[in-house]
Design a protein around this nucleic acid. Sequence first.
DNA 1: AATCCACAGGAAGATTAGGATA
DNA 2: TATCCTAATCTTCCTGTGGATT
Length: 380
Amino acid sequence: MSEEHLSEGGIFADKAVLRSTYIPENLPHRMEQIASLTDILSTALKGKAATVKYVSKQLEEMARTCNCALIYINCELFYTQYRVFAYLARVFNKHIPVFGWPNDVVFSELKKGLDTEGRHIVVILDEMDKLVTKEDEALYKLIRINSELNKARVSVIGISNDLTFSELLDQRVKSSLGVKEITFPAYNADQLKDILTERAVMAFNYSALDDAVIPLCVALAAKRNGDAKRALDLLLISGEIAERAKSKKVSEEHVRIASEKIKASMVEVVKTMPLQPKILLSSVLTLMREKNERSFSSGEVYNMYRRLCDHLGVGMLSQRRLADLISELDFLELINAVVVSRGRHGMTKEISLNVPEELIQPVLFADHELEALFNIRVKA
DNA sequence: AATCCACAGGAAGATTAGGATA
DNA sequence: TATCCTAATCTTCCTGTGGATT
């Protein structure tokens, strides 16, 4: 139980419930994704943290019905290639000494064991980051094992609390993991409401929430992409504001203040950005006005970016560099950037604005270096 | 099944900015 | 002021990717 938890007495019952690290018992409106997670037992996968963790909680139950074995490995304990493979091989009744055998012998024993059983197995690697730093070949081998098996299939579910660890991953591993990445459609207002209500019951003390608070949070968040994390953030910050104000209840007013605070910090982020990212952001804005669409390919954005630089008489960056800036803005949650394949038409990042246009447009135009964009021709 | 688009994103090296030091 | 050092930025060159199209 956390320190934070102990000090809750007024508004909050358990603040941690609202944080993005919290694993809910229930995951409403994601049954389809959960179903497909259990479905694709022939490939490696990764997904949004909460969903994967939830699945690992529940999968054991389902595993019995879909005839596959579930093997849980805590990488904090089994942190080398040898230990992981030896552990797995032992599951298939292979006798492997604790140490002494060469890695590749252990590996081929594991393959033999798998193929004689010929089943689907799901390997859950908890604290996966520990394994990656200590032994980078293990993950790669495990993921690629399918191509060397005849009958059996192996899936890997990686769990990690370390948000930055995917940067450490071997590119080969990353790309294999990404193969069956599941997409998560945005929640609609009703679904968001369900989610917030469910969490609020646990997070707040009884009757510490005004009835209007959740609908308001949903209304404010739904304007911006139906992102559950944003709605939960808003609720959390509202609660904190109410708490600091020594109020007994979280009211609509607190939500409004919280919303203003969030907006203010977004404005601040945009205001203090260097020139080039500002031009990039302006490019997205201009594209939205010109084409009357919401999302654009990185090629479109780069072309617009060049146009704007030209217009401003500013030196332009390479496409490669711009791709990095796009990722940075994505990280800051100012834009959404998702890699998609358009088949014959190549791969792109689909880029869309993630903050209210009317909020950042004035900020950008206020920059005297961008003044010239004011009168840029909007052609149909 | 093979091709091929339009990029993503890694590697390595160059350039620049911002200091520190002498 | 000139010189050096380091980190951040940015470029060039590159290989890899998924799936619509052939």
